[in-house]
Structure formats: structure tokens, C-alpha cells
Amino acid sequence: MPTFQRAIVVGASSGIGEALARLLAAEGCHVALVARRAAELERVASAIREAGGRAELFAHDVRDFTAAPPLFERIVGALGGLDLLVYAAGVLHEPAEGEYDFEKDREMVEVNLLGAMAWGNLAAARFEAARAGTLLGISSIAGERGRRGNPAYGTSKAAMTTYLEALRNRLSRYGVRVVTAKPGYVDTAMTRGKKGLFWLVSADEAARQALGLARRGSRSGFVPRRWALVALAIRSIPSFLFRRLNV
């Protein structure tokens, strides 16, 4: 199993991204932290450094797509190469019943999907040329089915899952691993205060399991694994029944 020496974590200021960054750094990986909120990044970087790890921080809004290529080059230069790219940036806006807010939908698609493509393409090209590398995308079980509760979020995650699958099919012949982690409910700022959550795991546990998938070079996996049962169930429900469910 590969040990990652140099990693970029996009979306490292909170949640699973932060936990992944800390976990990687604790294992000796030189980590570049990328996120929009500089103060939060500073907090994560300080914690990593205090624990004896190495972290560089780069404030960046993943919706600023044209800024990504030069920043990626700069980071790779600073790290002296790249073994792992983690894309963990994500936003979730829960629309109210009867609410259709394009601006919120757009933000979710831009952050969850287009940002993943902007950074994923850069890493994919580098890894394909190097004939090595791992790309870990944090998608979601929410992409398994079009739920009435959140059309745009589910769409962004379904598209991200398909994008990562396509990258995997494109890059596996070059020895590059593309791994999709699909968490269920994780105790993060994104989910805090929401009702009806179950099988909740901590961000640290989700990160540990996602990193395990990346290490093993798994194609795709649910985090925790038991969510595979839920995914199987919701994929199996006929459409005429699924639309009656309040999910």
C-alpha cells in the first residue's frame, strides 16, 4: 500500500478535509491545505505544525477556476511533487419545501462538482504523465438517487461520482488510482443540527476510512461501509414508490 509523501487537500479548513489533512500530516506527509477561509486554514495548519507535522496553506476559492492552474503548479513546486490529491470541498444548502433557489444550486454545483473537475483535471494530467498518483474524491451517498429533498446537492454528488469513475477508467491503464469515497452522515458543520440523522460518524473516523480506501486503491466505497446497504436499498426502490418517500 502506498504511503503518501506529498498531498494536496482541497477543502482542508473543516470537516472530512480537515481531518484528512491532520491524519496525513500525522503520518509524515507534507500537506498543502487549500480552502477559502484563511483563518480556518491557519488554525488547521497551526494544529498540524504543533503536532510536529508539515503543512503549507493556500487560501483559494474553488469557484475561482482560472486561479486553480497556476496555484496547482505553485503548490506542486512547494511540495516538490505530488502523490495524492484529495478533493473534499463541498457545500450543502437544504432547500425548504417549495423553494427553488438557483444561486444556491449554482454554488453547490460549482463547489462540489466544477471545483472537483478543475482540480481533478490538473491532478489527472500530472498523474497520467507521471504514470503514478492517487486522486481521492469525497463524494456522497446523496448522489445515489435523485431525492426530492435536495435536487441540486444530489445532482452535484452524482455527477462528481460519475466524473471520478470516468477519470478512474481513463487513468487506471497508467497506474493512477482514482478513489471515490461516499460518506453517509458525518458529524460536521455541514450536518450539525439537522434532524433524522443516523449512523453518524465523526469526521476523524470518516477520514480514516476514506484514507484506507485510497491506500488500498479501492475504486469506490461507502463510509462507513454499512451505507452500502442503504445505497442498495434506495437504488432498488421503484420510482413510483421512491417519489412518495419523504427523503
Partner: peptide, 23 residues
């Protein structure tokens, strides 16, 4: 009109394909 540093990426190799680069 975008800057050339954001021009499309292409993974290219030498004819021997032992040396490749994202350009």
C-alpha cells in the same frame, strides 16, 4: 482570451512513451 497558463492541458509523450508531461 484566457491566459495561456490556463490553456487546455494535454498529456504528451515522446515517441517512446517513456517520457511524458502534462503540457
Amino acid at each position: 482570451d484566457a491566459r495561456l497558463s490556463s490553456a487546455p492541458l494535454r498529456v504528451l509523450g515522446g515517441f517512446g512513451q517513456a517520457v511524458n508531461a502534462a503540457c
